[in-house]
Design a protein around this nucleic acid. Structure first.
Lengths: 242, 242
DNA sequence: CAGTGGTCTAGACCACGTG
DNA sequence: ACGTGGTCTAGACCACTGC
């Protein structure tokens, strides 16, 4: 990268290198779990020093796109089901142990996006969405009613699936190359309405924790809207602030 | 730092430097808002290279203990009321604007810590706590009932205060040198009990968002336990996951 | 203009995990 | 023993800020 390219003027070299590496991961040229070249090889390839290549990798690791392991190498981040839960499902029991919920396979339904879905997912007038409704259980008892909407254009062919896995985010990554990078959760307390109460086996009016989540992909486009109504007994939602 | 000190073997140089700088901030040798020496001066003082001093400062900035401003210098982080709210009060209205709550002055009460307080705040058998109960309002209407417990030993003389400010964390820092660095919030939905409902002017049984927060200081000791019962209309708690 | 943080280089050495 | 990431150095130059 000896002479600064014209469209990159002003941007630090290590950011330019980082962004080219991001592109390799996004396009699938480098697959999840794959070992990538070390700092010297990358430095040689991009005509930058070892230190700059190292800084680019550190920035990639900061974005959770690679994992660096001393003595082993640098690997493209892999969305395993366990890791996805660990990253994006913050319900804990009263002993501070993370709760791993089960969900029954559910069939997605395709439909025209309604106004809320278009607003939440930045969709146009005639866009379609896949909707998934399902219950999540703990020790055999349902405690979360979940409603998910995903832009249909992002997941071609998914509507034909009969069964969806417990964690959708690794399916998004492995089958569609969509990496969920961050999420925003808006949390409130609501009273259970009749259908929800029936589904969860509780009295109508019971206070539920409502988690309204938008998940964003690498390019910061929303890829999923999910509303979870949670009946938490001896359990809580955990947020860490710093 | 030319020869590695014995108790520091194995720890990277820049971490050793960082920790000595942390100590200066913690003890008040460097005051909040103060400009600190540049990388070359720090490097000379600690007998390390410019790059290592820079890495120590970057690590300090990572901990939010200093703010680096290009062209100006590096400053010790200052807990202004506005910044504290921004960092630790995550209630937003439906237009995604952060809500700034007002609270009436409240008088702290001193008492022997009960079992829950001892567990949450890691206190011994006969430790005392200061308790503060207050309402927080939005547009003149109370919407949060708050109960706070703080180890009395941490805040000598506070019990004599008649009035407490809207944000306690900058009081902790300025008057007692306690810097709240992080917090854990456990969030659930509960039904309003009679006294809370009366205080907030709502019907008993109304779903409330209960936020159970422990705030931790620099040394990772808990310094405050706070339970907030929030009646959120057209408002929500926001969490950002990455 | 001077002073600051930010980037970049080239190279040495250390710490860790595997074979 | 080897290859990896992690640390550390010494020094050059750039970018931003305020005077």
């Amino acid at each position: 990268m000896a002479p600064a390219e014209n469209n990159d003027i002003g941007r630090p070299l290590y950011i330019q290198v980082r962004d080219q590496l991001i592109e390799r991961i996004r396009t699938g040229a480098w697959k999840p779990g794959q070992l990538i070249p070390n700092v010297f090889l990358l430095g040689a390839e991009f005509k930058v020093s070892q230190g700059t290549a190292r800084k680019a990798l550190a920035a990639l690791a900061e974005l959770n796109l690679v994992v660096r392991r001393q003595g082993l190498g640098t690997f493209v981040f892999e969305h395993t089901p366990a890791h996805v839960l660990f990253r994006f499902f913050y319900i804990f029991d009263d002993k501070h142990a993370q709760i791993i919920p089960k969900s029954k396979p559910a069939r997605p339904v395709i439909a025209r996006a309604n106004a809320t879905e278009r607003a939440k997912l930045w969709l146009g007038k005639n866009a379609k969405v896949l909707r998934i409704s399902r219950l999540r259980s703990r020790k055999g008892k349902p405690f979360i009613a979940e409603r998910i909407s995903v832009p249909a254009a992002l997941l071609p062919g998914l509507a034909e699936h009969d069964e969806l896995p417990n964690t959708l985010y690794d399916l998004y990554q492995k089958s569609y190359g969509i990496m969920v990078m961050r999420a925003e959760e808006r949390v409130t307390a609501v009273a259970a309405d009749r259908p929800t109460a029936k589904a969860l086996g509780i009295a109508p009016g019971t206070p539920l924790l409502k988690i309204d989540r938008i998940a964003f992909a690498l390019d910061d486009q929303p890829v999923e809207w999910r509303v979870s109504l949670c009946h938490l007994v001896k359990a809580h939602y955990l947020a860490r602030l710093k």
